[in-house]
């Protein structure tokens, strides 16, 4: 008798028997969007090295993806990924981690590598909370929310636009979606994988267990409906005033441009330095 097998089962590490995500977690949607994109591009898991940090989203590739996976320290996956990409320039390097990992403790690595425009895909699963440690405030937690470390409500301004930060830093490709947009997300991941440059995708993802309870936004279904309701395309958003855009989620592909990419620049530098090609940089120097 033929067993009914999920079409993406082949992408899952054979030794993995169950997921670690809470019921209703958005991580499953993100995982499937990544695998759909890889499958859609006709690529193989051996074309990739996945890197993750610490937090729930970091567990998407580790251990589930049947590929080379480096599960690193808190906040540093992009820095580890830098070394991997330089060592294996022909492989696709993808970082999957959360907002706490990539934007709080690891914020500078995100900024600096977006600036370098080193080719890699970074998927930032933004659930607005520290889920794994039990619901502490993140830099993405809206002001006033009561969390386990802010029992009287958060008193800090928060990151409303991580994508804007990465755009300003100089990334080649930046997009934002929510888990209520799995198809659009998959398409953007496809583009990100193929991008010669730093490709960043922010995915707003529901954490019903920690965030939903604290915010009073309800269960996973209610949170997804809320995402749908609040989302607005870049084009539509342009027609609205900042006041009208409050509490809205602008989704879409913000940036998709071609600019010098670091691995290529390094390769070029090495060719010059090793005498493979004529030295041109020093020509003007006296």
């Amino acid at each position: 008798m033929n067993e009914l097998v999920h079409p993406y089962h082949c992408f899952i590490r054979p030794t993995v028997t169950h997921t670690t995500f809470c019921p209703g977690c958005g991580d499953g949607t993100v995982a499937q969007s990544i695998l759909r994109a890889i499958d859609g591009l006709g690529m193989d898991m051996d074309d990739f090295v996945f890197v993750s940090g610490i937090g729930c989203a970091a567990w998407i590739p580790s251990p589930f993806f049947n590929a080379d996976v480096l599960h690193t320290t808190h906040g540093r996956p992009i820095a580890f990924a830098f070394g991997i990409k330089m060592g294996l320039p022909d492989k696709k390097v993808m970082v999957v981690s959360g907002d706490g990992d990539l934007v709080a403790i690891g914020g500078n690595h995100l900024i600096q590598n977006a600036r370098r425009n080193i080719e890699m895909t970074v998927i930032c699963v933004n659930n607005g909370i520290y889920g794994m440690t039990g619901g502490q405030a993140a830099p993405t937690t809206p002001m006033g929310v009561k969390t386990t470390t802010t029992p009287y409500g958060t008193f800090e301004n928060f990151f409303e636009d991580i994508s804007g930060l990465v755009i300003a830093a100089g990334a080649s490709f930046v997009a934002r979606w929510t888990t209520a947009h799995p198809r659009q997300l998959t398409n953007s991941i496809k583009k990100a994988i193929q991008k010669k440059g730093f490709a960043f995708i922010e995915v707003l993802s529901q954490c019903p267990v920690q965030f939903g309870r604290k915010m009073g936004t309800g269960n996973a279904v209610q949170m997804l409906e809320d995402y749908k309701k609040r989302s607005i395309s870049i084009k539509e958003a342009k027609k609205l005033s900042p006041e009208e855009l409050r509490d809205r989620i602008v989704v879409g592909e913000f940036v998709d441009l071609d600019k010098p990419e670091m691995v290529e620049e390094v390769t070029r530098m090495i060719r010059r330095a090793s005498g493979e090609v004529q030295e041109v940089v020093d020509a003007g120097r006296g």
């Binding site: 090295v49 890197v51 080379d68 480096l70 690193t72 320290t73 540093r76 820095a79 580890f80 990924a81 830098f82 070394g83 991997i84 990409k85 330089m86 060592g87 294996l88 500078n108 690595h109 600096q112 390094v266 530098m269 090495i270």
Partner: peptide, 23 residues
Amino acid sequence: AFFQMEDEISSIAAVIGASWAGK
């Protein structure tokens, strides 16, 4: 190549990444 990183944390991280890439 030598790479000047943003700090020492990323320096050792990149070194470990490169080592896993076989370097």
